[in-house]
C-alpha cells in the first residue's frame, strides 16, 4: 500500500532528464570522430609510402607483404569510418536552414566523401591531406553553426 503510494508519487515527480547518449536521436554530434579517422588514413598512407622490403629473400618479402596488407586494411577501414562519420553529420546534424549560412555545405560534404573513396582506391598522400583539410572545414562549419569557435586540434 505504502509502496504503491510512493511509486505513484515518484512517477508523477517532475524530473530533469539525464542522457544515456548515443549517436543520433540524442542530438549529440562531434566532428572529432571523423577527424581521428581521417588522421589515421593520412598516417597509414604515409606508412605505406615509406614501406619497403628489408631484402629480396623469402622471409623479407613475406614480412613486407604481411605489413603492407595490414596497412592497406587499416587505411581502408579508417577511410570508410571517416565517410560514415561525415555522412552522419551531413544527413543527421545539418538541416536545410544551415544552407543559407553555408551555401557550399552539400558540395563540401560531397567532396569530402569522394576523398574518402579516393583514399581507399589509391596510396596518395595528397588526397589524404586534402581529406584532412576537408574535415577541418567541416569542423569549422559545425562549431560555428553552434555559435562556438572550437580550436582545430589534431592528435598526430
Amino acid at each position: 500500500m505504502l509502496s504503491d503510494s510512493l511509486t505513484s508519487i515518484l512517477r508523477k515527480l517532475p524530473a530533469k532528464s539525464v542522457h544515456a547518449h548515443c549517436d543520433g536521436p540524442c542530438g549529440v554530434y562531434d566532428p572529432a570522430s571523423a577527424r581521428v579517422a581521417a588522421e589515421a588514413v593520412l598516417s597509414m598512407t604515409k606508412k605505406l609510402i615509406a614501406l619497403s622490403p628489408a631484402g629480396n629473400d623469402q622471409a623479407s618479402m613475406s614480412a613486407y607483404n604481411n605489413t603492407f596488407s595490414r596497412f592497406v586494411a587499416i587505411k581502408e577501414e579508417e577511410s570508410q569510418k571517416t565517410k560514415k562519420e561525415l555522412l552522419i553529420l551531413w544527413t543527421d546534424y545539418f538541416k536545410p536552414e544551415h544552407l543559407s549560412t553555408y551555401p557550399d555545405l552539400h558540395d563540401t560534404f560531397w567532396k569530402a566523401a569522394k576523398l574518402c573513396s579516393a583514399c581507399k582506391v589509391s596510396i596518395d598522400q595528397s588526397k589524404a591531406e586534402e581529406l584532412i583539410t576537408a574535415v577541418e572545414k567541416i569542423h569549422s562549419m559545425f562549431w560555428s553553426s553552434k555559435g562556438r569557435d572550437d580550436k582545430w586540434v589534431t592528435a598526430s
Binding site: L13, A15, K16, S17, V18, H19, A20, H21, C22, P25, C26
Partner: peptide
C-alpha cells in the same frame, strides 16, 4: 536528487 533517463547507452542495466 533525481533524474529521469533518456536514451539507451546504459542498456541492459539502466
Amino acid at each position: 536528487h533525481h533524474l529521469r533517463v533518456v536514451g539507451k547507452s546504459m542498456l541492459p542495466f539502466i
